[in-house]
Simulated scan of single mutants.
Amino acid sequence: MVCGLAILPQTVLSQERQIFTVNSILDEPDGNIGDGNCISNPSRLCTLRAAVQEGQAVNRAVTVPAGLYELSQGHLDITKNLTLTGAGSGKTKIDGMLKSRVFDIADTGFAYIGKVTVQWGNATPGFASHSHGGGIHNHGTLILVDSTVRASSINWRYGNVWGGGGLTNASTGKATLVNVTIVGNSTSGAGGGIENLGTMDVYNSTIANNQSFRSATSGGGIANTGTIQLKNTLVANNYEGDNCDGTIVDLGGNLSSDATCGFPTSRSNVEIVLGGRDDNDMLPIYAESPAIDRGIDDQCQSTDQRGMTRPLDGNRDGVATCDVGAYEYLAPLSEGVDTITN
């Protein structure tokens, strides 16, 4: 699946006669959905909401420049096909303002979302009246690439005990995450970072510092009752629920800071120190990190989440090997780094 993802955006865009480019941070709907024009009401600009609505109606891709896009009118519905590409995580920020989730994908929807930050979502009733998935709620098909989902939640103060603080993939959902950071999300249910009830594949991603308040084992990082596969993925320092709950299919190259994900002993209970959130809304790894050169090069992406070339020889042993997680470490030429043994 990942090999196909490498050409998916170009394939989609080549079929489009026109790309809608958002030119306003206002949150206004399209004035006449289906007329082939991205013109919002009343400002007559191409807002994010108008582009998403019109893009689905006439099957055109959406480009979102750098900026903060606050969703004052609620989440963005995806019921058909949508290709949406930003300027990069940390640059294009789509914000639920803690009033609503950001994306709600119906069972008829297909969404390719790349190079954005999804932030400050709050799960409110959406498709099927479900109140899980603080940042993204998917009943259809989701491909999330080079993006961050952060600071989103299920608000327990209003009696919401659903799961998936950052993202919920429902029982009918199919989701693929590539070069994604899931960080700082929370829920009063299961799965502070990710709640998966359907089918999900996760590659070269970082799931860290999320929390679930339901129980000590409810999956601060991931709660799974469906089928989820991880490869070259870092699951670290999730709390109030541990890293994982449920069966995780280990495709290799993964690391966990505890033993709850079922990874091999040598890749569990690993002390993983991550940097604070950077300008790309990522969590950097540093010299001598156990994540450096510990991934598997098969299906490793050619770049990391921020566009850094992969793989690099981060531990200076003469062999360039993919790092674990969304971030690829580049050792300064003057830096002496001890070789890390797999």
Score class of each variant (00 low, 15 high):
313 D>L: 15
324 V>M: 07
290 P>I: 07
331 A>D: 05
332 P>S: 11
298 D>H: 00
337 V>F: 12
291 A>D: 00
328 E>A: 05
337 V>C: 02
320 A>S: 13
320 A>E: 09
326 A>S: 14
313 D>W: 13
330 L>E: 08
319 V>M: 08
288 E>K: 03
318 G>V: 06
305 Q>N: 10
325 G>Y: 04
297 D>H: 00
296 I>F: 12
294 R>F: 11
331 A>V: 10
292 I>C: 03
304 D>T: 09
321 T>F: 01
326 A>N: 12
303 T>G: 09
315 N>H: 07
298 D>A: 02
309 T>I: 10
322 C>E: 08
295 G>N: 04
325 G>L: 07
323 D>P: 05
320 A>Y: 05
306 R>Y: 11
319 V>W: 02
335 E>P: 02
299 Q>W: 03
301 Q>S: 12
316 R>N: 14
335 E>A: 15
311 P>L: 03
301 Q>E: 15
303 T>M: 11
335 E>R: 14
312 L>M: 09
299 Q>K: 10
337 V>L: 13
294 R>D: 01
293 D>C: 14
301 Q>I: 00
311 P>Q: 05
303 T>N: 13
300 C>K: 02
314 G>M: 04
296 I>Q: 14
328 E>T: 08
299 Q>M: 03
299 Q>P: 00
333 L>W: 12
288 E>Y: 03
317 D>N: 15
324 V>I: 07
319 V>L: 08
331 A>R: 15
295 G>C: 06
290 P>R: 06
307 G>E: 12
297 D>Y: 00
315 N>W: 09
312 L>I: 05
293 D>S: 12
316 R>C: 10
310 R>N: 14
297 D>M: 00
321 T>I: 15
292 I>S: 00
312 L>K: 13
334 S>R: 13
306 R>D: 15
303 T>H: 14
